[in-house]
Design a protein around this nucleic acid. Sequence first.
DNA 1: TAGATTGTTAATCGATTAACAATC
DNA 2: TAGATTGTTAATCGATTAACAATC
Lengths: 220, 220
Amino acid sequence: MSAAQVPDATVARLPRYLHALEAVRDAGVVTSQELARAAGVSPEQLRKDLSFLGSYGRRGVGYDVAHLEQQIGVVLGVATRRTVVIVGIGYLGHALASYGGFAERGFDVAALVDVDPQVVGTRVAGLVVEPIEDLPQVVARTGASVGVIAVPAQHAQSVCDALVAAGVTGLLTFAPRALRVPDGVTVRAVDVASELQILAFHDARRHADLERAAVPPRAR
Amino acid sequence: MSAAQVPDATVARLPRYLHALEAVRDAGVVTSQELARAAGVSPEQLRKDLSFLGSYGRRGVGYDVAHLEQQIGVVLGVATRRTVVIVGIGYLGHALASYGGFAERGFDVAALVDVDPQVVGTRVAGLVVEPIEDLPQVVARTGASVGVIAVPAQHAQSVCDALVAAGVTGLLTFAPRALRVPDGVTVRAVDVASELQILAFHDARRHADLERAAVPPRAR
DNA sequence: TAGATTGTTAATCGATTAACAATC
DNA sequence: TAGATTGTTAATCGATTAACAATC
């Protein structure tokens, strides 16, 4: 099997390629140059990445859009539907529950869970919010394999524990906390404040570099 | 200056260290082992990362929490207040505007902007939402250097253009679209659907690996 | 055949891990 | 002095970039 040896860095870019392909679906064929431009990487990088999946292009021509889309989909397991439960239906949970882009990436949001009695029972994005106490039954009923944690940081670990106990094996958390999980559970974290800090650092460094470049070396 | 040569991979972890330090603020000193555990990295990785900033630890003892926190803060520019404008006040924009964790990381959310007349004029997290047409004045008035794009994907590029035209140099976007920006503008993208896909891939691969390990090699 | 573009190999670069000397 | 822990150097590993041969 080839998929087992696709490098992590490549895997992290595949969803972007998939997305860029959707945008050019009407064109029958794309070159690495066109697709790379749409995805925001270099053509060399794109070709190298795709070569890990197999040889799906035609030299002198390019890549068949539909075929490539399908092949990347196979590697990412888009056809393997995954069921998602979102815990924490505040503004962020609302945003996630309402986001329409998950289905075509292979994810079905099947349940929403919250701790607040005021929120439990309300209808959000076509689903009725269920109480956190029912998490085991909710996971069992929906067959959820992925849990999304959209609760305040101080409750992230206990929600994480509850999701894991209920049988979820993949976790996406938005809480700025390192989560402790047993072996066999995969965690991915999105921390918006950290993203802002990394962004600001790069921005500041860039400006410092530009300034330095503007001053003739002799002057320093 | 040393900060200019801090590796990207290290920079990306510094916010996590900063956050882990906050959790142990009452302890006067931490060892690399303790802090690494809290941040979810190896002690070697942590020490290596910190060594790029300088030699702030004491051999045989550990790191002074307050001092290290301050030094990382200096590198990340926490003291350099940055002003943020959020564009798109749907559920996601609401969540971002209401998030209380930005201030202590050096960011002040100074303005909220939306295109919808129904939303413009309403008060969110203590700020009155302003119309997108006023973006140039809003950026000028607040001195915003960072823009957060929380609008639907199809409007991301035009909002991006407007923010750049208004003078913003750093952009954090949540829209699953590669943004085109001029030189001198730094972009960072958070794509939740992609994160889910990457998570699911790692999760699936992990399970495949575990299964393979369970089967004696001879059997294959 | 000529032109275009992929896919692969080699070279470079950057990041992580491991080992241990320095030193509190 | 003995024990603990950092900071640095070296070794390994993985990712990116560049060059070009293969081939449509």
